[in-house]
Simulated assay, not measured.
Amino acid sequence: MKSNFRVIMVVVVIITMLAGSVYIGAGAFRTAGSGDTVATVGSEKITKDELYDYMVKQSGQQAIDTLVSEKIIELEAKKNNVTVEAAEVDEEIASYEEMYGGKEALESALASSGFDMDYLRGNIETNLKIKKILEPTIEITDDEISEYFTANKASFDQQEQVSARHILVETVEVANEVLGKLNAGDDFAVLAKEYSVDTSNKDNGGELGFFGRGQMVPVFEEAAFGAEIGKVVGPVETDFGFHLLIVDEKKEAVEATLDSKKEEVRDVLLDQKIQSQVTTWLDEKYKEYDINITL
């Protein structure tokens, strides 16, 4: 539904983590027995030894570099008494879930890019460690904050938004059938689970979360922003099918001020500076530690 739908990973990029790469440890497949069979083709066997050798050739250097970098970050966090609580990771996860309209939608977005929630949690935890390690070394002046806000003010303005739910079906006949049940008092969430073909949110009552103009396909957007709160709208036809929707809440546009956004701007600048410094920081740490790669 969202035209700019993509996985938004953590702002602070830490190390070379390539989508689709296989991350393995140096002995990951040998520990259980190098002759163990992982697949068969007719009477022929493919062993863990063969799999290990193939994966090392494909991405072994990238994988070991990633693991070394993660270990350095872990050791530096201990050295600096830096810890990340589960609640801190949960808070970040919650912001992503809100952005995508629920846990199921976020999981679907991650899966479409080859990731899962465990990967995201680990990525967030590592990024938070780096942020806590480097933040005390970074200075952000009031002039920098003011200049950035002035140059990017529009991005801090709150745009008009609506929070909506929808049920997506393939034909107008089914849409009218569902509409009849809604008008008769049937529960929207129950019908969404039963009828909707939008698997990213059907089990979450069809929740789409808050969205602004330009995020949905035009005809759906027009219907949503023109709807009265709490009233069923539709069927609305798009390239995806036929939608029945309910708008639960609306937020009016609000112009941002420097005073109200100062901390938010500081966080943006902090993330940018960390992102620009982390590679150099890791390079320096590589030189400090006795690293012996025998892959």
Rank of each mutant, 00 (worst) to 15 (best):
F29G: 12
R30D: 14
T31R: 00
A32D: 09
S34N: 04
S34Y: 00
S34V: 10
S34P: 07
G35A: 07
D36I: 02
D36S: 02
T37F: 05
V38C: 13
V38I: 13
A39G: 00
A39L: 08
A39C: 01
T40I: 00
T40R: 01
T40W: 04
G42E: 05
G42A: 03
G42D: 03
S43T: 12
S43E: 11
E44V: 04
E44T: 00
K45C: 05
I46F: 05
T47S: 15
K48G: 09
K48T: 10
D49G: 06
E50P: 00
E50D: 07
L51C: 09
Y52S: 06
Y52I: 02
Y52P: 02
D53W: 01
Y54S: 13
M55A: 14
M55V: 13
M55N: 14
V56W: 11
K57I: 07
Q58Y: 08
S59Y: 07
G60W: 09
Q61A: 12
Q61L: 10
Q62E: 15
Q62A: 15
A63H: 08
D65M: 00
D65H: 14
D65S: 14
T66A: 14
T66S: 10
E70G: 04
E70K: 05
E70R: 12
K71Q: 10
K71D: 04
I72F: 12
I72T: 10
I73S: 15
I73L: 08
E74A: 10
E74H: 07
L75Q: 15
L75F: 01
E76R: 13
E76D: 00
K79I: 08
K79Q: 13
N80R: 09
N81W: 00
N81Y: 06
T83Q: 12
V84S: 06
V84T: 09
E85D: 15
E85L: 14
A86Q: 12
A86E: 15
A87T: 14
D90V: 05
D90R: 03
D90M: 11
E92V: 01
I93N: 11
S95C: 03
S95E: 13
Y96F: 15
Y96P: 04
E97P: 03
E97Y: 05
E97R: 01
E98Q: 01
E98Y: 06
M99P: 09
